[in-house]
């Protein structure tokens, strides 16, 4: 079997070569067991060539001066992943029933389910964390000038992701179906209706009719847990692809090397 190139792990983590006399070069069952993980990875990689893509994604050159501000994007992504995971488990208990079942199911999760209050709290507070991180990430991109050529498309994708995050916040706010949720949604839908010409129709679309009705809650729930998360996940994929493809920018305070000789040597 042809040998694949070794994964790029630090020398300290690599297994030492066998000492002379150990098993006379023959693989013992212990050696096979130790190699099992590598063998599985090799087996998959030989059939998918995923390691090349993983290397392309992970082992990138980053500019000098890269600092903690550059972690805001992945922080936002982890906030989204946290929302996705806690949301899936909350969905196992939630009933989008406007005649009392929705409020009751949230009360049940909060007061009676093991760790329910904790997981619901993570989802509730995590949504604010995600919005804050989105804006910090956007501010970083703006003030570092990282939206400029050739990264304009990534800025646009980011703006769509910002809007989708806002849609998530708006639709998720209704789901507990308490007084605050209900009136905030009434006010929010009516603000949306003040857009001229199309606004009134968009309000009807959101409510599923001219009044807050039986289908409004389930519409919001479907948008919140199926439509928008899928879009966000797909767009995060595109966003990350472009980051890996185009590379990151140096911070604006980093000056280009004036001396052409040194500049060539650094490049």
């Amino acid at each position: 079997m042809p040998k694949l190139p070794a994964p790029p792990v630090p020398a300290a983590l690599k297994a030492p070569p066998p000492r002379p006399g150990d098993g006379n070069g023959k693989a013992t069952p212990l050696d096979h067991a130790a190699e099992a993980g590598i063998s599985v990875v090799d087996w998959v990689d030989e059939r998918t060539s995923l390691s090349g893509a993983a290397r392309w994604m992970m082992f990138r050159k980053v500019p000098k001066g890269t600092n903690w501000f550059y972690t805001l994007g992945s922080a936002t992504m982890f906030a989204f992943l946290s929302q996705a995971v806690t949301g899936v488990f909350l969905a196992m208990f939630y009933k989008p029933d406007p005649s009392g079942g929705a409020y009751e199911s949230i009360r049940h999760v909060t007061n009676e389910v093991f760790l329910g209050q904790f997981v619901r709290g993570m989802h509730k507070w995590g949504s604010s964390v995600m919005v804050i991180l989105v804006f910090l990430h956007m501010g970083r991109t703006f003030f570092f000038g990282a939206y400029k050529y050739p990264r304009e498309l990534n800025w646009l994708i980011g703006v769509v992701l910002l809007i989708l995050t806002m849609v998530m916040s708006f639709t998720g706010y209704l789901l507990p179906f308490d007084q605050r949720a209900y009136w905030a949604t009434i006010v929010g839908v009516n603000i949306n209706g003040t857009g001229p010409l199309l606004g009134p129709y968009l309000s009807d679309f959101l409510r599923g009719g001219p009044e807050f009705g039986a289908v409004t809650l389930s519409r919001f729930y479907a948008i919140h847990m199926m439509l928008v998360p899928g879009l966000i996940a797909a767009l995060i994929g595109a966003h990350l692809y472009l980051v890996a493809k185009l590379g990151t920018t140096a911070p604006p305070w980093l000056k280009a090397e004036k001396n052409p000789e040194l500049r060539k040597a650094k490049a």
């Binding site: 406007p98 005649s99 009392g100 179906f177 209900y182 009044e211 807050f212 009705g213 039986a214």
Partner: peptide
């Protein structure tokens, strides 16, 4: 809105 209790 009939059928949704107090919210209607």
């Amino acid at each position: 809105t009939p059928g949704i209790g107090e919210a209607g």
